[in-house]
Amino acid sequence: MRIRPLLDILQACDVTAVHVLKIDIEGYEDRALLPFFREAPATLWPGHLIMEDTEHGRWVQDVFPVLRRCGYERRGRSRGNILLSRF
């Protein structure tokens, strides 16, 4: 299986804006999101982020402080997902 960074995928598809990103990668959210927010221009940051956080024990680094610094706030929660929005 080939793994590619999120930013590479968006650029390869000529994506210029992301309104909502739903991510569920079984405890690897930190390894996908942290490089994305470190390298992607803020214009590509999604307005809303829906992510599974029940596997946060697998994270090498907590993503929530980084997301807060990027302007995201918790807007809602379901059984296993959290909704974060940036305005």
Rank of each mutant, 00 (worst) to 15 (best):
P65C: 03
I9A: 10
D30V: 12
D30M: 12
L67E: 01
F87G: 15
Y72I: 01
Q11F: 03
H56I: 10
H48I: 02
V60N: 08
F37L: 00
P35W: 02
I25R: 00
T54C: 13
R38P: 01
P35I: 01
I82F: 02
R69T: 13
D30S: 09
L67S: 04
R31N: 10
R74W: 07
P35S: 01
L67D: 00
P35Y: 01
N81M: 08
D14H: 11
C70Q: 15
S78A: 15
W45F: 14
M1R: 09
H56W: 10
R79T: 15
H19I: 03
F36H: 11
V66G: 07
R77H: 12
N81W: 01
P5Q: 10
A12P: 00
T16C: 05
S78H: 08
T43D: 05
W59V: 10
D53H: 14
P46D: 10
L44T: 01
F64H: 14
L7Q: 02
P46S: 11
G57I: 12
V60T: 14
P35C: 01
C70Y: 00
P5H: 10
A17V: 03
E39W: 04
P65Q: 04
L44N: 02
L6S: 09
S78C: 04
V18C: 06
V60S: 11
R77Q: 15
P41M: 04
D8Y: 11
N81D: 14
A32N: 00
G27P: 08
L44E: 01
W45A: 05
V18D: 01
V20H: 00
I23C: 10
G27E: 07
R58W: 05
L6R: 07
E29Q: 12
R68W: 03
V60A: 13
R2W: 06
W45E: 03
N81E: 15
V20I: 09
D24L: 05
H48C: 05
N81F: 07
E39K: 07
T16E: 13
A42W: 07
W59A: 07
A17D: 06
E52N: 13
R74M: 12
S85G: 13
D30Q: 08
F64K: 11
I23W: 08
D30Y: 07
R4F: 08
I50S: 06
I82A: 00
G57W: 15
Y28L: 14
Y72N: 06
Y72E: 01
G80M: 13
R31Y: 04
F87I: 09
I25A: 01
A12K: 10
G57V: 14
G76L: 02
